[in-house]
Write a protein that binds this DNA or RNA. Structure first.
Lengths: 126, 126, 126, 126
DNA sequence: GTGGTCTAGACCACA
DNA sequence: GTGGTCTAGACCACA
């Protein structure tokens, strides 16, 4: 099984993204400790090795840093976090555009959609 | 393994959606024949039974109709197709909102995003 | 082989009807659990997939509802059950008519038949 | 495959009944020739041996008689034919009763059914 | 335990 | 060729 529709990606990458989303949303605030590999593996029901790989990726990426014997911590680098936030927003935007493009929606329909988005995201129309 | 990361959905439902997207985008125009179960199974690298299930779902749903011995065809019901288009747009919108919400983006950032979307989707700002 | 004699219908549809008959006759009362897929497959000596298909059909039809991990249950919707009862009666009636029609029975013979039916079905003649 | 619901019976018996129904309805009038084994086998898409067995059954039963080299013919015995007619009517009646019994229909519903039957079978109510 | 999904492969009816 | 049905059997999620 593996098709152009199989949207599964490696589990370790899914964990990488989860950590990023949680950090950006300050569920894991800057400088806070992320769950231990063991705990995360239990939560995710995956093998600890998989979590290890995810944390290695995050560390190489500068998103977390590890203190021997103490655990891993979210970066306190605000620039870094902002970049991540921007990336996530950008990915979401690109995904939306590619999903919507080609549907042949009318401008009226598109404007309705934007209206809804602005309302739900608290962006005042002027 | 079942985690909040596991975004896999049943393959047959992924095929259902693929057909819908292709039809709404008129890659499969109204009334046209969709690939045979065998061909689709080959294309997707899945078992023919899985495709059969997807096609059954689509037929039950009134999205395709089947002529025994001849194949399956996209509905010519314009209302039906419009409803599907609206649904796809709505799903994409909801997904975007849930992805973006909670990132704590500023109004300036959000407006930039809307500007980009409008540009790529050819919606004139006024 | 496909002749006007071949009265076989798909096994899964035969199971669908069996469940309906048993429910209408309250062998499976409203809200009661129907046998598990495995048990029914064993009872019927068919493959579990075939029973699964029958149960899917019944669920789609609103005749049973399924609780994951617990089993499938007969609808408690009385309207639904009454409709089913009426349908079964109607089918039986049509079958009888088509079997009897064209035999060229005399009115006397037909009236004898009705008399027998009324007697066995406890419908008082007046 | 073979369950309590599998209502298939031996093909040769199905052919036996078909011939009887056709004869009683005078599609094959008394004394007329029934199709040759070969023709019937072709019509039914079954093996000639199967038809042979059906015809043997019918002959043993006195329903048809065979003239060497000429074919098989429907009995001209009117008593015999009447008995057959009565049997078919009786079978249909019993089937109807067993289908309807236990459904718990009200007398009103049952009387509606009888009304419909009488109408379709041209039995005047008085 | 329960149902849900999937594969591999067979055989059939229809055209 | 097309879809329809079925078997045998695997593995999974849910409870």
């Amino acid at each position: 099984m593996e098709t152009e529709f199989d949207i599964t990606r490696p589990i370790y990458l899914q964990i990488v993204e989860l950590i990023k989303v949680r950090a950006v949303r300050e569920f894991y605030p800057p400088g806070s400790r992320v769950p231990s590999i063991r705990d995360m593996a239990t939560e995710m029901k995956v093998n600890p090795n998989t979590v290890t790989r995810a944390y290695m990726e995050l560390e190489r990426d500068g998103f977390i840093f590890t203190k021997r014997g103490q655990g891993s911590f979210i970066t306190e680098d605000k620039e870094r976090m902002n970049k991540e936030k921007t990336d996530l927003a950008s990915q979401a935007t690109q995904l939306f555009i590619s999903n919507i493009k080609g549907l042949g929606l009318s401008k009226i329909q598109l404007n309705e959609i934007f209206g809804q988005m602005k309302k739900e995201l608290d962006v005042a129309e002027n």
